[in-house]
Design a protein around this nucleic acid. Structure first.
Lengths: 350, 350
DNA sequence: TGTTAGCACTCTGGTTCGGTGAGTGCTAAA
DNA sequence: TTTAGCACTCACCGAACCAGAGTGCTAACA
């Protein structure tokens, strides 16, 4: 890594890096290509525009900046942002107001769903970007109790409660009708067998049992186990996330074409692609940043993601973050995502 | 009402009405003001543009059409659409394909939530507008069983199951810790008291009991009843709806300004306003149409709603429909909304 | 050798201008 | 009552144009 830095140093002078930093900051601020004159003023060093132009030419050769057309200023490229984010930026801690509202909204002991929604709304509200929070996923999730209740028709309502107080339920149509007594019997059997065990193990055992004792099990028990299996599956990968403030992205000129917005909103609606990216962050420590195409999701090509995993006692994990244009205020957004993740984790912990 | 019709007849000639119908149809088709020449051709009657112009002047005086500027054609006003919808349109039944996909997707016996989502997606997919489905609301909703489970900390998980197989659950922090045995006792007591009763009655009785026997009830029972009350409340007004295909509205030129879209999408996000409109349709028979400002919701001023209540055995009711620009293809959309409501009801009934 | 001034050049964005086409209202004739 | 004719009005389009911002290059300078 130090060789990497040296490599950079040899290619890009200290001064050029400083220019890049100022340029990125400026471009993030007002969204327009930055010309040599403006930059010359902004750097603080007393240099002429011509000198700046020379430096810019170098940076352009390195692929760190580009100009939209001949006589516009320069804008950072994805690589430029990357360098900026990796080694140039000086984060700006959230204002007291921001911290205060985060604390206030996330302190109260609400249920998980509300907390998730609040966090997402806070993220989008404070950053003026789109906020996204993935539902917490239990690493160790314990089967607590199952309940099978008869409904009208040949339908059965199955309810599964895990140790963390999550409730999963599903209605399933069975081939034949079971009496309440039969269902109660099955319920008791299942609870006796699995209560207190890890969900993953339960699933495994259910599958094995189903295969092995295929014939010599009475039909009810068989059916009940299938039911249980379905439920346990749904409890395991509860793939969902909550996105807020999509419309904030309409403010940004670079995304403001109808087609582009449509793609973007469709991506938000069909959350899978985004979930997939978030999934990759779940194991990472600290704030993760995907700039432009780095996310690997073409619909987010001119967007950046700033994410952070949150963890509760190493048992529950999730990811949250924001989505915005590549031109986002990283120095401000990063610490906000960071602290939101911490506070959400704390709120979930209690 | 017949006087209303006569009134109309006396003011607007049969021919003028026909012109209006053709004009509306044409404008709906390609979204541009219709001129006298085009209209003259389209009506079928062999008339000159000049004649048409005279008629249009009459229609304009009546406030049924307007021209965006001096030398554009005419477009229907809200009143024009209203007249069209009330007495001019000839509905076009859905294509076999549409019916087929509706049948296919709504036939399968899935759970309620999936059905709702499917219906909404179908509506938006087929009409190319935004689809909206309100969650079914049980008119008669019977308390079936409640379950109170201890969690870590002083928290209790309360689960309420209604006769229809709906599961409501909530985690509540209590002041002091209750043992599993205590909770089980409370559970049994509550179930004994309320099982099989209508939710509304349960709520009433809970409130009364809480007030009356305020002192001489042990703290646990008191707390449990409060819990139950909260749950029952949430079971009662489960105000939510599912909206799909918002982005379809971006295709329509008349809504395609950034501000306008932003308002619209924010309205979709913050569903309350829309729910409020849907609520008003819940008692109505058949398809209901709100044109432009008729909805009373300013954010939907240049939009129309086509809705229809669906009913299951007079016990469950909900509303579904589509939202689109006032310039929507009513003749096609109305029967689609109609049949979707019927099919959804049928799917929920089983 | 790095920096600067000067200059020619390029490209965008806004403005102006005239022409065209679609459409209107009005009047007078059929 | 309908129609033809006519003058008029706009929106839209493309051309021309200018101003402004910014560049690259070259040559001079410290």
């Amino acid at each position: 890594m130090s060789s990497e830095t040296r490599h950079n140093d040899s290619q890009v002078s200290e001064r050029a890096l400083h220019f890049l930093k100022v340029l990125v900051g400026r471009y993030i601020r007002d969204g327009q290509p930055v010309g040599s004159r403006t930059l010359a003023k902004d750097t603080g060093l007393d240099l002429s525009p011509a000198t700046v132009r020379n430096v810019m030419a170098d940076l352009e050769d390195l692929g760190l900046v580009a100009s939209p057309h001949t006589s516009a200023g320069r804008v950072p490229t994805a690589a430029g942002y990357r360098l900026f984010v990796d080694s140039l930026l000086t984060v700006r801690p959230p204002t007291d107001d921001d911290i205060a509202s985060l604390r206030l909204c996330l302190e109260s002991r609400s249920d998980v769903k509300t907390l998730i929604e609040t966090a997402s709304n806070l993220l989008s509200g404070i950053t003026h970007l789109a906020g996204v929070v993935m539902l917490p996923r239990h690493e160790r999730n314990v089967f607590r109790q199952i309940e099978l209740l008869p409904l009208s028709g040949n339908r059965v309502l199955a309810i599964l409660v895990t140790s963390e107080g999550e409730v999963h339920n599903r209605i399933i149509a069975t081939e034949r009708r079971f009496s309440p007594a039969q269902l109660e019997q099955a319920t008791n059997a299942l609870n006796g067998l699995f209560s207190g065990q890890d969900i993953k193990d339960v699933r495994k055992r259910l599958l094995e049992d189903l295969k092995r004792t295929h014939e010599n099990m009475d039909q009810l028990m068989m059916r009940a186990m299938l039911l249980a299996h379905e439920l346990v599956e749904s409890a395991e990968h509860k793939d969902d996330c909550y996105i807020a403030g999509q419309t904030n992205l309409m403010e940004f000129g670079e995304l403001a074409s109808m087609e582009r917005l449509r793609q973007l909103f469709d991506a938000f609606y069909e959350k899978r692609g985004i979930l997939h990216i978030l999934d990759r962050c779940i194991a990472a420590e600290g704030v993760q940043i995907f700039i432009g195409e780095e996310s690997g999701y073409d619909l987010l090509d001119d967007c950046s993601l700033v994410t952070r995993a949150y963890r509760v006692d190493d048992e529950v994990v999730g990811v949250l973050g924001v989505i915005g244009p590549t031109r986002m205020d990283y120095e401000r957004v990063i610490p906000i995502v960071d602290v939101t993740a911490r506070l959400l984790a704390a709120a979930l912990r209690q």
